[in-house]
């Protein structure tokens, strides 16, 4: 029997997320039912938005359930869940990254960074984010030396490092949050901090998507991403600030005004993370992971807003509290 040990505040927030998802599912169901019964035949019922919305809501159920369960089971389960997320993101990236067939060993080096990073954190290793990319770079150099191929060294090592830094080192700051001592993390402990930053960033994503789809017109950065609009960015920022101000006092050592400011910052960094992933896809000539890998994709898109926001939040709590 696993004893679930969660701070009451975390339970309340998880219950709130559950309520929101239930609301989303039932609202969509009610809208569809109303359309059928009243014979409205609304245009959006036949648009591709509807199945996409349904897919997204279903995905949210699965992600929220896995995330909530890992938080409830405990520290090691949370770390294992985050390591799995790192693996899924890295695999998605390596599957489309332009490695040549003879550069196969670099991919093993990239995967090996996952147990290194999370094992380090699970063993109580201190905050040493620089170690894993340096070890990965050393491994890449060793492989290059064995191959005796200096050609393309910068290209291939950059490909490995991008994956290691984004999929593993950046996301592992979420795991570092879990391990923060109660003296720093305050009321809801490390898991509360993790829940806070994930909820704030993901609600920013959801708001950016919803506002951008419904009223976004002017494209923010057409050269990098055609889907991101100015209105969407504004909606995302408003959501992160509001959600952070709402949850901050319950999950973190921050007061309300401080949480609002940090929420804005997380919103900005979340958008920048999204832009970085879009730029990467542009460079690879991929418009959307989902089309290239039908039925796949999405792991990187799901966590892009955390790539910069998670390390920022960790260091902010670590140094400012």
């Amino acid at each position: 029997m696993i004893r679930l040990s969660l701070a009451p505040n975390i339970v309340f927030v998880l219950a709130g997320i559950l309520a929101l998802l239930t609301l989303a599912t039932s609202a969509l169901g009610a809208a569809i039912a109303a359309d059928r019964v009243l014979g409205l035949n609304a245009e959006w019922m036949r648009s591709p938005i509807l199945p996409e919305l349904r897919r997204r809501i279903r995905a949210w159920w699965i992600m929220a359930a896995a995330f909530g369960a890992s938080l409830a089971i405990g520290r090691i389960a949370s770390l294992a869940f985050l390591a799995l997320v790192s693996f899924l993101v890295l695999r998605e990236y390596l599957s489309v990254a332009p490695f040549r067939p003879e550069e196969r060993n670099y991919l093993f080096a990239a995967y090996a960074a996952i147990p290194l990073q999370y094992g380090w954190i699970a063993a109580g290793g201190s905050n040493a984010a620089a170690i894993v990319p340096l070890v990965a770079l050393a491994a890449v150099s060793a492989i290059a030396a064995v191959r005796g191929a200096a050609a393309d060294f910068l290209r291939s090592s950059a490909l490995v490092l991008w994956g290691v830094v984004v999929a593993i080192v950046a996301l592992a700051h979420l795991a570092l949050l879990v391990t923060l001592p109660a003296s720093l993390a305050n009321i809801a402990g490390g898991p509360g901090l993790l829940l806070f930053v994930v909820t704030v960033c993901q609600s920013g994503d959801v708001a950016q998507y919803l506002v951008g789809k419904s009223m976004g017109r002017r494209r923010a950065v057409p050269a990098i991403s055609p889907n991101k609009t100015v209105a969407g960015f504004a909606g995302g920022l408003a959501a992160t600030a509001l959600v952070a101000a709402g949850l901050g006092p319950y999950l973190t050592p921050m007061g309300r005004p401080e949480a609002l400011a940090i929420g804005l910052m997380l919103g900005v960094l979340g958008s920048l993370g999204g832009l970085m992933v879009s730029a990467m896809k542009r460079d690879l000539g991929i418009k959307d992971m989902g089309r290239l890998l039908p039925g796949h994709g999405g792991a990187l898109d799901r966590v892009d807003s955390l790539v910069f926001a998670a390390p920022f939040f960790y260091y902010y709590i670590f140094f400012a509290h």
Partner: peptide
Amino acid sequence: LGSAALAR
């Protein structure tokens, strides 16, 4: 999968 990008 990877080769379209690799070609560039």
